[in-house]
Design a protein around this nucleic acid. Structure first.
Lengths: 349, 349
DNA sequence: TTCCCGCATGTGAACGCTCACAGTCGCAGC
DNA sequence: GCTGCGACTGTGAGCGTTCACATGCGGGAA
């Protein structure tokens, strides 16, 4: 006998259901639309009305349902970040920078970590975030595979890349790796080292390639020869392992290592081999992780302002979301050489 | 003259709007409900119908709108994680563990970083995630303030805490800090050290207090005296600074440091002071960060399985969401002592 | 006075889905 | 032949907002 509206839709107990807009409207004696207007600071609401609505909102502890808002506006006010390994200092800091900036602008941040790194996984992660309803995506994945994936993304999804190469069709925020690497190399050359060795990162990482390029250009500019190139995988272990081969080379007095962890491994190996740092061999790292100042010896390195990178990403992304067009902007953040105890003047011979 | 339905609601160009359920229904010649049934693997769909629907879905590249689903079901299939500093190895790894497990269960993960740590900021962050529509929240914030905040949370929000104290009313996942600290201390005692000093973390961190407790209990069990307690702030810098005071003490041969970064700072200070490690002083850390094995000397430390912690959090949280009741579970993850080169037997005197 | 206009407010549809329920059809049972 | 029941499918309401438009009301210009 009871009509279709007789029973409330949500009878499940435990306190009353949260207030919705019509509840507020009823209590304030206005229409739901007026409540909406108050919420959006519309000028067309009389002062007294506004106050009554505000009072009702407080009394009922009303909070707008973001899901309903998203459904009707088509905007979720949430962003996605895809990243390869948020356990690393760089990505983690960038993520933090993005999150804080997003929060300030009223955006939520969802994350998607990649377990493996290839075109399919990157495209999949972006798609997954998209299917989740985010308004835009930041891709922190400075590998060739990731960059490649970006080109294969549907053009309607707003996206910003971190640290991608120069030849992209999406907006990019990057630290000037070449300048940083050149500064590190120049620093060693200026200390009187005739040669500067380099331990690079993996081949498919753009940052690794760019640091090589910076190293090469500084070498060339100084008229120095280019020694054999070594490669690690960013880990301290690989720095340690490569150290062994480096020790086999003759005349090594200065090494520019592509990140701080590998530099740590190298320091360890040099120490074990009884080679003094910086006395016999000067070492420069890259990143300036918080621990770098406490290595033995304290590491001269190149600082990257990851937080700034994160903030820039966010701004670029929001601009893209608001304007609905994908631009070709490229924001470059300058790195900074931080000189500590792991480098010293070459011994006179 | 044109009726209210004459103009489509979304005329904005750039490709056609994504397909919705009724588009699929129309193409397949069925009702939207049947499409929904196919999507949810309802058994009451004839084979042929199902196939036609599936074909239409593929043809239109249809993807269900998660926002609409969330609106009607009241579930967003998204989780929130609040954390203090995701730049640190521990929280970052836990976050990763949560994210991967969540992904596997079809949940999205939103993050909220805390800039400052107090009851209001934690409550605010949880509220913010809630207002965003998450189904549940994991709080990674092992400080007294955070735990305190959890008690002041509305009881209807599903929540799990990481590393909180033992006296809580919310489910907790924690590494057994006491056991870990005791193992570290015991290790040093068993090497013949008469005394084990301790550099603890900040007072308001539960982990710091629990590691102190484990250290004390091991000391007591061995009948060893309890030396003066030192405190740092988890940073390498503080370990370095505290090292100075430690060097002023007489008879220090073994130190258990509450985390690896402080241990690094201490190693650095000892090195500068010309005190040999482990020859004169043995050092044990806590966490086993990836770099620990490459410190000088390689650090003996206590490994925490953060990924496992993250996974457990997720399971507890989903159980809570599904059952709609907040339980009192406490999952304890066992730590593991990793012996490396920074500890050695006490010199006979 | 009359008309118009702008402010303040209300009304109803739409967003894209799920839920509850109401059919429809074919076939076995009496 | 009629009833009943299962398998399958369709209908319409409703989730909580915003958007487009309609309406009521008061005041200044003509």
């Amino acid at each position: 006998m009871s009509g279709p509206l007789a029973r409330p839709r949500r009878p499940r107990g435990r306190g009353q259901r949260p207030a919705v807009m019509t509840d507020v409207a009823k209590l304030a004696g206005v229409s739901h639309q007026t409540v909406s207007r108050v919420l959006h600071d519309s000028p067309h609401v009389r002062r007294g009305t506004r106050e009554r609505v505000l009072a009702a909102i407080r009394q009922l502890d009303y909070r707008p349902n973001p899901v309903a808002q998203a459904l009707v506006t088509g905007r979720s006010r949430s962003l996605g970040v895809v990243s390869f390994d948020t356990t690393l200092y760089g990505p983690a800091s960038t993520l933090l920078g993005i999150e804080e900036a997003a929060h300030d602008r009223g955006y939520a941040v969802s994350i998607a970590s990649l377990r493996s790194l290839n075109r399919a996984s990157v495209v999949g992660a972006v798609q997954r975030l998209r299917d989740q309803g985010v308004d835009g995506v930041v891709v922190i994945a400075p590998q060739r595979a990731a960059v490649d994936a970006l080109l294969h993304l549907p053009p309607e999804v707003p996206v910003v890349a971190v640290e991608a190469g120069p030849d992209d069709s999406v907006p990019v925020v990057a630290v000037d790796q070449i300048a940083g690497a050149a500064a590190a190399t120049r620093h060693l050359l200026e200390l009187g080292h005739r040669n500067v060795w380099h331990i690079a990162g993996p081949e498919d990482w753009l940052e690794a390639e760019q640091r090589i390029e910076g190293w090469r250009s500084a070498l060339r500019a100084a008229g120095a020869a280019e020694p054999r190139l070594f490669r690690g995988d960013w880990s301290a272990r690989s720095g340690y392992d490569v150290g062994e081969h480096l020790l086999a080379e003759a005349g090594v007095t200065a090494v520019f290592v592509a990140n701080d962890q590998m530099a740590l491994g190298l320091l360890r190996r040099l120490h074990e081999a009884g080679r003094e740092t910086p006395g016999e061999i000067s070492v420069v790292g890259f990143d300036d992780i918080p621990e770098a100042a406490y290595f033995t010896p304290p590491l001269t390195t190149v600082r990257q302002d990851f937080a700034e990178v994160g903030r820039s990403c966010l701004h670029l992304l929001l601009a893209q979301i608001d304007s609905r067009v994908r631009s070709w902007t490229r924001v470059v953040v300058a790195p900074e050489l931080v000189v500590r105890g792991s480098t010293t003047a070459a011994r006179a011979r």
